[in-house]
């Protein structure tokens, strides 16, 4: 359905997106995950036909976006992070107008409107002025305008930002219900949201895709060596000797606790924890507790892939050096949010 090849997008001299390629099928929810400034919004804007690519091709249902941008936009619904709403209009009037500018005739809009209002749960506010609605309802009106014309592709940029927990749960239901009638692309930097809503995740960083797949596939990509935390009783030197002699221990860190208790955080090359424990006990140490560092969760994968400065980055393998450079490049930009910079530049123009 969507075929992106070598997509690059510059804002002036700044490459917001670099050589991005991916395919997306029909009736799936795909999440774009990335830190602020990763290039998510830019990719979505290009897919939505709001921006033209600097290089590369974007094909939607086999048609190049550059060949027929206006007609392709008929098949796409787009909602940016801040819902674009004419606040002086009433909900129903606004949605009718949106349907009409997207090519629907009045009869089709009248037929479609009740379904969209029901889907987005706007019945209670359909006659109210948009400016008077709560943020949650404004988001829903934003989604409603994006789907009023029954698009084949719905693009939602940060759809849950600014919503309270109840609204988030309701929004999740709306997003999942959309899947039955179209493909949905959402962007977020909220990991739990992406993992709960999306069938597939594309992780963007520094304007490039650094990983893609389901949550499980992404977790599998993180081949982390086990790290074990032990609480031991006895002589710390004896524990140090065991660790030094144990082949798969790469590092160990001791922290003194009460009395003769101490904590040992051991990084292992391979999962030989039973053998390690046996040797520690054999050396006369008492084992009070043992826990394993939780690995493979999406948050770890994300932090690892984006090389976030929390100390976890070093535990990843297959991390291209250039991505680390990209982080530095981005950090040196005047603003740390390229998405904001993008819109600013756009607006300045």
């Amino acid at each position: 359905m969507i075929e992106v090849r070598g997509l690059t997008r510059y804002y002036g001299d700044f490459p917001a997106v670099r050589d991005v390629s991916f395919n997306i099928g029909e009736n799936v929810i795909v999440g774009f995950l990335g830190l602020n400034g990763a290039g998510k919004s830019t990719v979505l804007k290009v897919l939505g036909g709001l921006l033209m690519p600097s290089a590369g091709t974007v094909k939607f249902q086999g048609i190049d976006a550059l060949d027929a941008p206006d007609s392709l936009r008929k098949k796409i619904g787009y909602l940016p992070e801040d819902p674009p709403l004419y606040k002086e209009m009433r909900v129903q009037e606004f949605l009718t107008w949106c349907g009409e500018i997207k090519g629907m005739d009045s009869a089709s809009v009248s037929k479609r409107l009740p379904k969209v209002i029901e889907l987005c749960d706007l019945k209670s506010v359909q006659d109210r002025i948009i400016g008077e609605l709560s943020h949650g309802f404004k988001k829903r009106v934003g989604i409603a305008q994006a789907i009023i014309h029954q698009p084949d592709l719905v693009i939602l940029d940060e759809p849950i930002s600014g919503l309270d927990p109840v609204q988030i749960v309701e929004m999740r239901k709306v997003l999942k219900s959309l899947k039955s009638e179209c493909t949905v692309l959402i962007s977020s930097h909220i990991l739990s949201e992406i993992s709960q809503t999306c069938d597939r995740i594309l992780v963007l960083h520094g304007g490039q895709i650094v990983a893609e797949g389901s949550e499980k596939e992404l977790s599998d990509k993180l081949s982390r060596a086990p790290r074990v935390e032990l609480v031991l009783r006895g002589d710390q030197d004896a524990a140090q000797k065991v660790a030094d002699a144990f082949e798969s221990v790469t590092s160990v860190k001791f922290t003194a606790l009460q009395g003769d208790l101490f904590r040992a955080v051991v990084n292992l090359e391979s999962d030989d924890r039973e053998e390690l424990v046996a040797q520690l006990i054999g050396a006369g140490l008492g084992l009070r507790a043992m826990s394993e560092d939780q690995s493979g969760e999406l948050e770890d994968v994300f932090l690892g892939l984006t090389n976030a400065p929390d100390g976890t980055a070093g535990r990843l393998e297959a991390k291209p050096a250039k991505e680390s450079e990209a982080v530095e490049d981005e950090a040196s930009e005047p603003t740390d949010d390229a998405d904001t910079a993008e819109s600013d530049e756009e607006d300045e123009s």
Binding site: G48, G49, L50, D70, S71, L72, R73, K74, I76, G77, Y78, P80, D82, P84, L85, Y86, C98, I101, K102, G103, Q145, S343, D347
Partner: peptide, 16 residues
């Protein structure tokens, strides 16, 4: 429209 970002509605529409 640029100031209030409602320009997006027109940008995302099939209008020329």
């Amino acid at each position: 429209e640029k100031q209030t970002n409602t320009i997006v509605l027109l940008d995302a529409s099939p209008l020329a």
